[in-house]
């Protein structure tokens, strides 16, 4: 069987459109509106739940149809303003896993388009480079002038577009807007060749601060089976971590991370599907980290859950880098898996 045809141009432009949008954990409004507009023509129903998860339902309606939850988080890491000083400089705390050495010198943006540069106090030792020594300079001359644009609790994210770099794409928030793009591509695929199942596409909130959106979405949906699509770390850079996953090596089928050990039957199903359809894949063990599936699989009486990962370098930096062919492989694998009977429930 040939791999399903993915429109790579469409996929790349979708990633380039979604990744720059504003959406730190808890403030996902702008990215949610953007995704909602893209998915509305492709599904039967679109709704937002109490926490802000965007849930798009595509009904299969076949007899024996299962309820399948497919999740990609739309939130991104960011910073939140904690203090404005007399001279208009902003102190901040991280929203999600932000590292000081990465932030220094970056341009960040607020949801109204206000931009700032991340500066540092004078440090005697580079080891002192910690988040509490950094500040954001939005060009304000005083507290009053700064307060006209931002207030305590305002959030900012990296200001960065998506650019092509050789075979790859690079930009901010490819974690996990590339997964969101993969889900939308799956919707296109299911238009052409439907799934028998009722598929609940969840663009989840607050993943970066503790898998929170997926937890409540799964409770409401009560899925029989669940998949998450998220990025994963790779071992293919100079003197990098000892991981087997490579950018350009295909969709990564997760075996384990800190939040989940993939249900063995679901793991086999994904591997067999990739083999049968000629979809490039690799196997992934991540000694840390977690995805929406970590929360989903422990919902109610338990949900067999799997993860299709997109290998990505330089995670949680404004220069995340991935190969769109891997995103295409992830979308193709998920679309094929959704056409499977998915008989992986309890005995």
């Amino acid at each position: 069987m040939n791999p399903p045809t993915i429109d790579l141009t469409r996929l790349k432009s979708l990633i380039a459109e979604l990744a720059p949008a504003f959406g730190p954990s808890g403030e996902e409004g702008p990215i949610r509106e953007l995704i909602a507009a893209r998915v509305r023509p492709l599904v039967d129903e679109v709704r937002t739940d109490a926490l802000g998860n965007l849930i798009a339902v595509k009904r299969g309606g076949a007899s024996g149809a299962r309820r399948v939850m497919v999740s990609a988080h739309m939130d991104e890491i960011g910073v939140i303003v904690t203090h404005i000083d007399d001279d208009g400089f902003l102190r901040f705390a991280p929203v999600g896993a932000m590292r000081a050495p990465v932030l220094l010198g970056q341009r960040v943006m607020f949801d109204d388009g206000t931009v700032g540069t991340v500066g540092s106090e004078k440090l005697d030792d580079p080891k002192d480079l910690k988040l509490d020594r950094l500040f954001i300079d939005i060009g304000a001359a005083s507290r009053k002038e700064a307060a006209e644009r931002v207030r305590i609790g305002s959030m900012a994210v990296y200001a960065q577009d998506v650019r092509a770099a050789g075979r790859c794409l690079t930009g901010k928030a490819l974690d996990d807007r590339s997964g969101c793009a993969a889900l939308i591509e799956v919707m296109h695929q299911l238009q052409a060749e439907p799934s028998p199942h009722d598929v609940y596409f969840v663009f989840s909130v607050q993943e970066e601060v503790g898998l929170r959106g997926a937890r409540t979405a799964a409770y409401a949906i009560e899925p029989d089976v669940a998949f998450a699509v998220d990025v994963t770390a790779t071992g293919d850079i100079p003197k990098g971590e000892r991981l087997a996953v490579k950018v350009g090596g295909g969709a990564a089928i997760k075996i384990k991370d800190r939040s989940l050990i993939t249900h063995p039957r679901l793991r086999r199903l994904l591997i067999d599907t990739a083999e049968a359809c000629g979809i490039p894949y690799q196997l992934e063990v991540l000694p840390y980290g977690g995805t929406d599936a970590g929360a989903v699989h422990l919902t109610r009486a338990g949900v067999p859950s799997g993860v299709i990962s997109i290998p990505t370098r330089y995670l949680h930096t404004p220069g995340e880098m991935l190969d769109p062919h891997d995103v295409a492989a992830a979308a193709a694998l998920l679309a094929e898996a959704l056409r499977n009977p998915l008989a992986v429930g309890p005995d």
């Binding site: 249900h263 699989h297 009486a301 338990g302 949900v303 067999p304 429930g345 309890p346 005995d347």
Partner: peptide, 8 residues
């Protein structure tokens, strides 16, 4: 005896 979704 039965086995649930996670294998318990």
């Amino acid at each position: 005896v039965h086995r649930d979704a996670l294998g318990n």
